[in-house]
Design a protein around this nucleic acid. Structure first.
Length: 501
RNA sequence: GGGCCGCUAGCUCAAUCGGCAGAGCUGAGGACUUUUAAUCCUUAGGUUCGGGGUUCGAGUCCCCGGCGGCCCA
């Protein structure tokens, strides 16, 4: 947009290669041409040409004239014949050739003077194949469509992980896997929505900015509304609003959107993360578990064409079949070699914790400690998709009590490759019991546990109007991508949060 | 929060015991009408993350800080 070089970045302060590229931009302007023209009249995409001339024999001239555009990803200038590989946004590449006899001495010289790796150019000419058999456009004319002022990284060496994350746009230019991940993610999002729409679920959007944060136990981000003169929280979960929807008669409802948790950042945690949450009236944790499996398997089919997905490292991972289902206390007992139940008391659990070098927080009850032992001893080994069922009431304040087993709830966590992918409940809909549990949570909050939930009177009022029996489920989208692709969370998120440079 | 490792040219990386800061690619100039990480000749490019200290001399050793990665909690 701006035509003049800003005085704030004196040319002499720039690295040599950037000075050179700026001077090439100046040269284009001095010649009366545009380094950033409004458009270039292209008549075909590179992919269209590849398809149309797929079977053209070596060293053939078609007589067909086309106009193409692309970013220069490879360039080879010789005396009277120049080669460049152009690449389209979809990753398709095609060769452009510029010969002295076609474009003339002035334009060939100009090409050599001003075109660098990374520039966008347009080329008009005849579709041919080279003597080496490469499908090419033999130029009659060419134009700069966008001059690149920064050199690209070397293509034969991988960029550092930090550079890939900080300058994702460069990562996308250089690495096919980065572009592929974006498309896989889009395919998964679309598949999830399609799968839910087919089952007559309704997509809604509920508040991101909330007066009270709830629906999960996590530390929130706090912000401030000047108009209301009150602090607001970025939501940690949409749960309490989606349940209001179910109360209101939207009996199959879902939301795919961002949650924010003011907690650690590492290879599997991001402070903002995308989540699918869904509720099904007259369902329970069994029906919602089946739905979850079907959503994941349909997403695998949509993006990889199979329940067996291929990870980034080339290994195959099978998401097919019915998936293993175990109980929390069952797998924990197995890992400890001794029978543990929800009635096992603190002293024995503490013994197990000491035996396995697990530090015990004095605020933990027996349920929390059992879960911590489970996470320490069992979770890393849960590689194949596994539903872990029937968690203690103590740690699950929004879950219906188990229909048969006192002290437990109808909740499962789904583990894949050693991380939690989703969680599902038979929802607690009794407003009286819900109030008791939320009051207990609010007491914890008052005692300084800033992960505990606050009392949301309006949510309780909604429940008092009557919420039908329901199953509910939440699934991390970024983690679903991790399960499908084998990538780390910072690769599945296009622009993950990074510290300022 | 703790420990360990790293940060050097546009990019990826070297630099012995503390002793002239280097290579490949990229860039610039030249040759080449069939190149695919071309080849050949010439050549430029540095606040060694920042600050302080030790030393005749610091990329290298010490201290403080920044950023990143891994492990632990």
């Amino acid at each position: 947009m701006t035509e003049q070089t800003p005085a704030s970045s004196p040319a002499e302060d720039l690295p040599e290669q950037m000075r050179v590229r700026r001077s090439k931009r100046d040269r284009i302007l001095a010649d009366g041409a545009e380094p950033y023209p409004i458009t270039y009249p292209r008549t075909a995409s590179l992919a269209q040409l590849r398809e149309r001339y797929a079977d053209l024999p070596t060293d053939t001239a078609t007589g067909d004239t086309v106009s193409v555009t692309g970013r220069v990803m490879f360039i080879r200038n010789t005396g009277k014949l120049c080669f460049a590989t152009l690449r389209d946004g979809d990753g398709t590449e095609l060769q452009a050739m510029l010969s002295l006899d076609r474009v003339g001495p002035d334009r060939l010289e100009e090409w050599k003077r001003v075109v660098d790796l990374g520039d966008h150019v347009g080329v008009t000419g005849e579709v041919i194949t080279s003597r080496r058999g490469e499908l090419s456009v033999l130029a009659d004319s060419w134009a700069m469509t966008a001059k690149s002022l920064r050199p690209l990284p070397v293509s034969h060496k991988p960029m550092s992980e930090e550079a890939r994350v900080r300058q994702r746009y460069v990562d996308l230019i250089m690495r096919p896997q980065a572009r592929e991940t974006v498309r896989v993610r889009a395919g998964v999002m679309r598949s999830l929505r399609d799968s839910l729409h087919r089952r007559e679920f309704v997509e809604v959007e509920t508040p991101m900015l909330q007066l009270l944060h709830g629906g999960a136990t996590a530390r929130p981000f706090v912000t401030h509304s000047n108009a209301l003169d009150t602090d607001l929280y970025l939501r940690i979960a949409p749960e309490l609003f989606l349940k209001r929807c179910v109360v209101g008669g939207i009996e199959r409802v879902f939301e795919i959107n961002r949650n924010f948790r003011n907690e650690g950042v590492d290879s599997s945690h991001s402070p903002e993360f995308a989540m699918l949450e869904t509720y099904e009236a007259y369902g329970d944790y069994n029906t919602i578990g089946n739905l979850t499996r079907e959503l994941v398997q349909e997403a695998a089919h949509a993006t990889f064409g199979s329940n067996v997905v291929t990870h980034a490292d080339g290994s195959e991972f099978d998401l097919g079949g019915q998936w293993r289902s175990v109980t929390l206390y069952g797998v924990l007992s197995e890992a400890l070699g001794e029978e543990v139940t929800v009635r096992t008391e603190m002293p024995r659990l503490i013994q197990y914790a000491e035996k396995h070098n697990l530090d015990v927080d004095p605020k933990w009850g027996p349920g929390k400690l059992a879960e911590e032992l489970f996470e320490e001893l069992v979770v890393p080994n849960l590689v194949a998709p596994t539903f872990v069922r029937d968690y203690p009431e103590e740690t699950s304040p929004l879950v219906r009590s188990h229909r048969e087993q006192p002290g437990l709830t109808e909740k499962w966590d789904l583990y894949v490759r050693g991380f939690e992918l989703a969680t599902g409940y038979s929802e607690l809909v009794d407003p009286v019991v819900q109030r008791e549990r939320l009051v207990a949570q609010a007491r914890l909050a008052a005692k300084g546990d800033d992960e505990a939930m606050r009392l949301d009177e309006d949510f309780l009022r909604a429940l008092e109007y009557g919420m039908p029996p329901s199953g509910g489920m939440g699934m991390g989208i970024d983690r679903l991508l991790m399960a499908l692709t084998g990538l780390g969370i910072r690769e599945t998120i296009l622009f993950p949060l990074v510290r300022s440079e």
